[in-house]
């Protein structure tokens, strides 16, 4: 019988990525660039929310967007046309998430000297993106009303890594059994520090609250 030698490794498969992510954050801090990682399910209204938010902030901050999708460039084109800001599309080549290395490659396609805020629109998915640190300064996620108020219970990791939970499509709340107070409670169970911001991206209601939060974040990041 063939002899076997065992080599002990004892290493988390996420360890390498976590180190890459920390390095990237340190570099961004030095260059005064704030990176927001925005996550959600497909169809939650990420792109519409971004367009509204960018239009509120683009006179105060220099903004760029990186759109991550498995395929196509429809989102990058939509953002560029609606806001006039630089927007690039990243293809994950079938992967369900972005990691720090892929984020770094994406950033290398932007002129960071002319940018204060980069928004990374992660792949629409509530599982994998939560698992991989992109090197962002903060994580935000959008939960839309039709998805249900119990999502924080079903996808605990996603809600525990987010600093802000934007609840979108509040205009259709009467048509769904969505209880905003319950939703807040479920988010708090997973992450007591997360802030919940209800908005309606379609009408613009509440978007200024999210934009103000983001503006203050970027200013603090640059000044600290």
């Amino acid at each position: 019988m063939e002899e076997v030698k065992v080599i002990e490794i004892k290493k988390s498969v996420f360890a390498e990525n976590e180190k890459d992510a920390d390095d990237l954050r340190t570099e961004l801090k030095k260059r005064g660039v704030y990176l927001l990682n925005l996550m959600s399910s497909p169809g939650s209204g990420k792109t519409t929310t971004l367009i509204r938010t960018i239009n509120l902030l683009k006179d105060k901050l220099r903004i760029a967007v990186m759109e991550a999708d498995i395929d196509s460039n429809v989102d990058a084109v939509k953002i560029r046309e609606a806001t006039g800001i630089p927007s690039i599309q990243l293809h994950t080549g079938g992967m369900c998430h972005l990691d720090a290395e892929m984020t770094r490659q994406g950033l290398s396609n932007l002129d960071l000297e002319d940018v204060d805020l980069v928004i990374l629109e992660n792949v629409g998915n509530l599982v994998c993106p939560a698992e991989f640190d992109t090197g962002s300064c903060r994580n935000a996620m959008i939960l839309s009303v039709p998805e249900g108020d119990d999502k924080p219970l079903k996808y605990p990791l996603m809600f525990s890594v987010c600093d802000v939970v934007v609840v979108n499509k509040t205009d259709v709340m009467p048509y769904f059994d969505f209880d905003l107070d319950k939703c807040r409670e479920y988010v708090r169970m997973r992450n007591p520090k997360a802030r919940v911001i209800p908005i309606c991206a379609k009408t613009g209601e509440g978007v200024e609250v999210f934009a103000d939060w983001l503006f203050r974040e970027v200013r603090n990041w640059k000044n600290q």
Binding site: E2, E3, V4, K5, I9, K10, K11
Partner: peptide, 14 residues
Amino acid sequence: NEVEIKEIEVPECP
């Protein structure tokens, strides 16, 4: 919540 490589086994010629 571990996702960890514990060890690898490699063939060793006797």
